[in-house]
Design a protein around this nucleic acid. Structure first.
Lengths: 137, 137
DNA sequence: GTAATTCCTATTAAATTGATAGGATTAATA
DNA sequence: TATTAATCCTATCAATTTAATAGGAATTAC
């Protein structure tokens, strides 16, 4: 299941994509409109900024803005920042690979091959979807 | 990420599929061979039995066995029993549908459509995979 | 009747997630 | 320069879920 962090993050990004004009969008506005606890949303947008997906402007009239056009922002990147690995087991993760403790040989593991398939299918969706698709192009 | 419950469950099913002969397979044997805490595995196999995937025989020389041939046991069923919904959000779940609290209209939700796509791709993998595939046909 | 097994319920420990709190820092503007 | 309004940062807490353990009841083979 998707964490609320990810869901809130996706909604916020969509909101920003839709309302991009001259000035950055403020956390308070997004929180109110999308019914997200403001302080929680703050921390999520901070994560997105640190990862390079969002930029920010501090102080009065500050807020957040996209660093690239919505059509350039891939779901693979967004999901990895918000949700972490796309794979269902660490041993098939491309970006966060880890050996499973309980597996002497992962090529003999019955779960391994199945999870590679799932990973590839999921990845294909996220690779071919951008923020523009979410915000209704 | 897959829960350990699911991973252990899949490994145990694979083990049973591979060693099916006349007599049922015992929890202790599986636990030892697959390095799974025995009591934890007990509860997992109990779940699988209650769902109808496994059968059991009590008492001395008892144990667990598959209710159908490995090639008849679909991953969709196994995953739903062990891991729960296949969808990443309740509002796109086929078997466990629930409205999202924070969504006034799910057809306008930017996350909804994306998650339907992911669900369908994942589902296609699980639909076309059986325990026979896991246990090396 | 004894030993070996599944079955059942309850409990606990650890990890993760969701949310909150309080203030430091920065920038616009009057 | 003081005020206001925003992001930024760190810490903490509460709730939930996950992983594992404990102890014994019920059942069956021999």
């Amino acid at each position: 299941m998707l964490s609320k962090k990810t869901k809130y993050g996706l909604k916020a990004l969509t909101y920003i994509a839709r309302s991009e004009g001259d000035s950055p969008v403020q956390v308070g506005e997004i929180a109110k409109s999308e019914q997200i606890p403001q302080k929680f949303l703050e921390s999520i947008l901070l994560t997105l900024r640190k990862s390079g997906i969002l930029g920010s402007k501090k102080g009065k009239h500050g807020g957040y803005y996209l660093r690239e056009a919505p059509s350039e922002i891939k779901m693979t990147d967004v999901m990895r920042v918000l949700e972490g690995p796309i794979a269902m087991v660490p041993c098939v993760s491309l970006n966060y690979y880890e050996k499973c403790e309980d597996c002497p040989d992962e090529h003999k593991c019955s779960v391994h091959k199945l999870m590679i398939e799932v990973r590839d299918k999921t990845l294909s969706v996220f690779k071919n979807t951008t923020l523009a698709d979410l915000s209704g192009s």
